[in-house]
Design a protein around this nucleic acid. Structure first.
Length: 826
RNA sequence: GCGAAAGUGGCGGAAUUGGUAGACGCGCAAGAUUCAGGAUCUUGUGGUCGCAAGGCCGUGGGGGUUCGAGUCCCCCCUUUCGCACCA
């Protein structure tokens, strides 16, 4: 007669108890033994979380419980990235205020976390949409404004016609809006920026210190920052009495520069084409290029188009006059927006030269090749060859030293200088939407742009706003918000209606968790210095560039403001893989998502089999950093395993009080402690589950066959329950209590293995003959090679395989195998 | 095109430093048990030859190093991801 496991009752019982005990609460006044773990804070989207989302939170909770049992003062806070477009869209579509909608969603998500048995320190909960939070965005903005790190400029921007807002470069994916997928168009608008480019070098070098980050993420960030070393070189334009500066990474090929190309948007373009016969036609073309979506324009397949301006520049190296062109393949915002074209040594320039019939001149010549004809050159000569006909450099080979000599020469002649250029652009933070942090500045007719004084923060979002879906920011139609007084002259003034990119919110929230209720400052420096950096950050790879780059940037800014000691906020980063499943809609196995219709609801799963089952299966599904396909069938394996563990409790009393000493179960127990501990340290949850299943199988067998004493069985069972707790917290707490223990498993110490218990007196040794497994023999663990050899050679099977041949050599791997080699190696 | 990661049974996946390949689980098969339920238990389950003992083959393909290779080295194929007119 066994008591069935009532997962519903047990799970809610323990969820209540953990909540009452405030099991995850941490006192931040002490930093000793601290371990700051952090899950990327979620956007409360209004869709119920599915099991794919669950993976992230479940593995975080397993880690948290494991750390706690290991005596760490683990901090695991949770909050809400609560500003964002979907809230506003919900307002437009359903007439719910973004604030009410968001708060309702938070409630739902919180309940889902609870049902998963996840422990967060809710006393530190934050939501970025509360004025108590976003006033510090504003405060930070003002400090950055003072230091020139925030500024406003007219700029061609990415505009999403559907979201009706501008997007940062990072938010444009394949030419489309990252959020809604609508193709992005170019517009010129006055916008606010953060000067992240000033930190480009530090963001780059900081990556080298992040040993606990996946290489992949670091590579992506390096690519994004895109540092290029080279030189800028000035070319005189006699006709204009003016010069143009180009950027090149190959100043050593200047003798081969046969024309210049400027971006059509280049400031000199207008004057260059002023006297051109087809002036109007070129202007129209410039307009077309300007309006081409940037992604299409910078696509390699985009046809190169250009116009000869008819004006020439002088190549300082050769003294030759070379034509100046305008072409779409030169981008205005990279480098100086102008290049020297060296068709012989650059693929793009060669393609354009061939297309337009422009001359090609070689600087580097292939060795041994007396005469490469520039006219027939099909491929550019890249990073090989020797310089000819470019005094005083003749005979030099392509390489860094040659490059240095060219730059020194250019500097000496006064024609150019070394320069480093980045692909990274400044961070466009303006958004023309309501549901975000208002940018705290005011426009006064008399005083111009006036920052809102700190004392007047926060600039609060007005609640009473109409959401119509019409073009433009709803904020700009709110009279009560827009109309204000100038803080300087007290005259009438208008508020800035742009709000901040929500990535500003998430760029410093990890610091706010440490001072969540401080109404006097952004965060407490002392507490931050005690608890930062985040020891383990966990989240999706989709934030590899955006959020993680911005957060690193803002952390460095705060460091420079003297507000926090560290420069890198996240010491270790873990990116969990996504959960996939077959989608009826697409007929493919795809990332689990509502739009693909392939989600599995944890609500039903928990109802049917319990949260512990979902947790164990999710952790067992595969290595957590890899993607994994959800299998509805395989879930039952986890369920069966937990059921077996549950039933074992009632079988324990059936074990005999005494039994023939069986060291194997005790050995298994210690081996499992070692394996599970090691697995959890490595985030290898799947192998931890496997090890626990094996121990469960061993104990089950021992109980069945009555080969171990009751005490030993109970001891093994208790260890199993403890080790299983981080993975299946509810059931293990219940079992622990039923075993008669009064403290929560969270309060117990993680078991330690005893090295001595792992050893066996006799071991099974594999015998190989010429590298093939031929037999197994039992020997003393301590046996030396001589003894082992004697035992092995006595085996009839081994004798057969040796077939009378000499053993030329024997290789003994103590405790594992012996290899008898008969043939000589060839 | 460039860069990175990966490729192991029907499936998900194990395998510190080179040392018994396939742990653990799913599925499948046979059996036991049960007042049929999608329950529980036992056994088996890489391929192939064999009545069996056992042999041979086997970690994408080909070569190499080694007493011994999933693991190290070289070449190739495939897949996934990232980057890609950035001068």
């Amino acid at each position: 007669m066994s008591t069935p496991y009532d997962h519903k009752a047990v799970e809610s019982k323990w969820q209540d108890r953990w909540e009452k005990q405030r099991a995850a609460e941490v006192d931040l006044r002490h930093g000793h033994g601290k371990y700051y773990m952090l899950m990327m804070f979620p956007y409360p989207s209004g869709d119920r979380l599915h099991v794919g989302h669950g993976r992230n939170y479940i593995l975080g909770d397993a880690l948290f419980r494991f750390l706690r049992m290991n005596g760490k003062r683990a901090l695991n806070p949770m909050g809400w990235d609560a500003f964002g477009l979907p809230a506003e869209n919900a307002a437009i579509q359903r007439g719910i205020h973004p604030r009410d909608w968001t708060l309702a969603n938070i409630k739902v998500m919180k309940e889902q976390f609870r049902r998963w048995g996840i422990l967060y320190d809710w006393s530190k909960e934050i939501a970025s949409c509360f004025p108590e939070y976003y006033r510090w965005n504003q405060w930070l903005f003002l400090r950055m404004l003072e230091k020139g790190l925030a500024y406003k400029k007219m700029a061609p921007v990415n505009w999403c016609p559907s979201c009706r807002t501008v997007l940062a470069n990072e938010q444009v994916v394949d030419g489309a809006c990252e959020r809604c997928g609508t193709p992005v168009v170019q517009r010129d608008l006055e916008q606010w920026f953060f000067r992240i480019t000033e930190y480009a070098d530090r963001l780059l070098s900081g990556l080298d210190t992040l040993e606990g980050w996946p290489e992949k993420v670091k590579v992506m960030q390096r690519n994004w920052i895109g540092r290029s070393e080279g030189a800028e070189i000035r070319f005189e334009i006699p006709a204009l009495g003016e010069s143009v500066t180009v950027f090149t990474t190959r100043p050593d090929t200047i003798h081969g520069a046969t024309f210049l190309v400027l971006a059509p948007e280049h400031p000199l373009a207008g004057r260059l084409i002023a006297k051109h016969g087809k002036h109007a036609e070129i202007e129209a073309w410039i307009e077309t290029v300007r309006n081409t979506p940037r992604i299409q324009r910078s696509d390699e397949g985009n046809p190169k188009e250009g116009w000869d301006t008819g004006v020439v520049a002088v190549n300082p190296a050769t003294g030759e006059e070379i034509p100046i062109w305008l072409a779409n393949y030169v981008l205005p915002e990279y480098g100086t927006g102008a290049i020297m074209a060296v068709p012989a040594h650059d693929a793009r320039d060669l393609a354009f030269a061939r297309q337009e019939g422009l001359p090609v001149r070689l600087v580097y010549h292939l060795e041994g090749d007396a005469d490469t004809d520039p006219a027939s050159l099909a491929e550019p000569i890249l990073h090989v060859g020797v310089i000819r006909n470019a005094p005083p450099f003749d005979g030099l080979r392509d390489g860094p030293e040659t490059l240095r000599r060219f730059i020194a020469w250019l500097e000496e002649k006064g024609w150019g200088k070394a320069r480093v250029v980045y692909r990274l652009r400044d961070w466009l933070i303006s958004r023309q939407r309501y549901w975000g942090t208002p940018i705290p500045v005011v426009y006064c007719d008399k005083c111009g742009l006036v920052p809102v004084p700190d004392a007047q923060l926060p600039v609060e979002l007005p609640y009473d706003v109409e959401f119509t879906g019409r073009e433009g920011n709803p904020l700009s139609r709110s009279k009560s918000f827009v109309e204000t007084k100038c803080p300087q002259c007290k005259g009438p003034a208008r508020r800035e209606t742009d709000t901040m990119d929500t990535f500003v919110d998430s760029s410093w929230y990890y610091l706010r968790y440490l001072s969540p209720r401080d109404a006097t400052k952004m965060f407490d420096t002392e507490v931050a210095n005690r608890w930062m950096p985040v020891d383990q950050y966990i989240g999706g790879i989709e934030h590899a560039i955006l959020h993680l780059l911005y957060a690193r940037f803002i952390c460095k800014v705060l460091h420079d403001f003297g507000m926090v000691g560290i420069e890198e906020p996240f010491q270790n980063l873990f990116n969990q893989g996504m959960i996939t499943r077959y989608s009826e809609k697409s007929g493919r196995i795809e990332k689990m998502s509502k739009s693909k219709g392939n989600t599995v609801s944890p609500d039903e799963l928990i109802e049917e089999m319990g949260a512990d089952t979902e947790r164990v299966y999710t952790l067992f599904i595969g290595p957590p950093e890899k993607e994994a396909e959800w299998s509805d069938e395989a879930v039952s394996g986890a369920h069966r395993f937990l059921q077996r563990v549950w039933r074992m409790l009632e079988k324990l009393p059936e074990a005999p009080p005494t039994a023939p000493a069986d060291p194997e179960l005790e050995r298994d127990r210690h081996a499992t402690i070692q394996r599970v501990t090691h697995s959890l340290q490595r985030f290898s949850f799947n192998t931890a589950v496997a090890a626990l299943m094996e121990l469960s199988n061993s104990l089950s067998k021992a109980l069945e066959e009555k080969t171990a004493s009751r005490l030993r069985c109970e001891e093994t069972f208790d260890t199993l329950v403890q080790l299983l707790h981080p993975l299946a917290p509810h059931m293990t707490e219940e079992l622990w209590e039923r075993r008669g223990y009064t403290e929560s498993l969270l309060e117990t110490s993680w078991p330690e293995h005893d090295e001595a218990k792992l050893r066996r007196a006799r071991i099974e040794l594999v015998v190989q003959v010429d590298g093939k497994v031929r037999d197994r023999v039992e020997v003393d663990a301590a046996a030396d090679e001589k003894q082992v050899r004697a035992t092995v050679l006595a085996s009839p099977r081994v004798k057969d395989f040796l077939a009378g041949r000499e053993v030329a050599k024997a290789v003994l791997v103590p405790g594992r195998l012996i290899n008898l080699v008969t043939r000589r190696s060839a």
